[in-house]
Design a protein around this nucleic acid. Sequence first.
DNA 1: TATGAAAGTTGCTCCTT
DNA 2: AAGGAGCAACTTTCATA
Lengths: 148, 148
Amino acid sequence: MELDQTDFQILSMLQDDGKCSYSKIARNIGVSEGTVRGRINKMLKNEVFEFIIHTNPYKIGLHVQAIIGLETRVGYHDAIACQLQPHRSVRFIGAFSGKHDLIIQAFFRDNEELVSFVDQTLSGIEGIISVDVNVELKQYKDTFSYVD
Amino acid sequence: MELDQTDFQILSMLQDDGKCSYSKIARNIGVSEGTVRGRINKMLKNEVFEFIIHTNPYKIGLHVQAIIGLETRVGYHDAIACQLQPHRSVRFIGAFSGKHDLIIQAFFRDNEELVSFVDQTLSGIEGIISVDVNVELKQYKDTFSYVD
DNA sequence: TATGAAAGTTGCTCCTT
DNA sequence: AAGGAGCAACTTTCATA
């Protein structure tokens, strides 16, 4: 799908305020409300973006955040990723080129839950050679606005 | 701020559909529309969550995604993080305990932009001892729904 | 692009605890 | 007080032409 200037202007306003109304966007960028609605629906259909909420993990009791790098046996990527996928704690899973074959990001209630994840869940999965656990101490930036 | 069952039910519905109306939520969980509105506004004020959009980076031309681990000289965390913060490409910056002192996640238009980021931007920052670049090959999971 | 009906939002008051 | 329900004015949405 080709996005033009108008589409990017719409995305830009929505990423500042996901609740911004069609009419407010329309007024700001000088097109009709129907145009904004049409563009948004087209982009939603093409999965250019989606309306979501971002919950602050700390405020709902998830105090421990970790990024875990995994070294895996050749050909075990997919199987491991699929086993990790359903876990509530796991927010992100990606296959990478570099030192780690798989990198995951996960949230836990406390350190105990993290330890149990590493010692029980991860150690029970076949094909994992090494586990590199990094626990977040401080967050400097966490943005979802990457449209210019 | 203390969240009760009603708050979690509201969050749960919103994380499935960020555009869900107050009245639809109200009907579904059996309280009045005003109650839903009040709870949402209170949570927004307390920064429990925010309404945003999640743009698919690929669809807007950001084809290269990387997670970069940095080893830094003692005491240089903050200064480095602050220098990286304003960069458009950088989505996430965190200080960690573990093999890497800082971990960042960034999006680029192409490999050239990534290389230029590492060779120009990162190498120009004082206090960075080593750079561990991991380029994403495949994404298995990327969710924002971590309310039960 | 424009119109109008249907739906949603908002601020208010009133009630219950 | 605090939180939930109910009401009326206003705004937004969305199908139709």
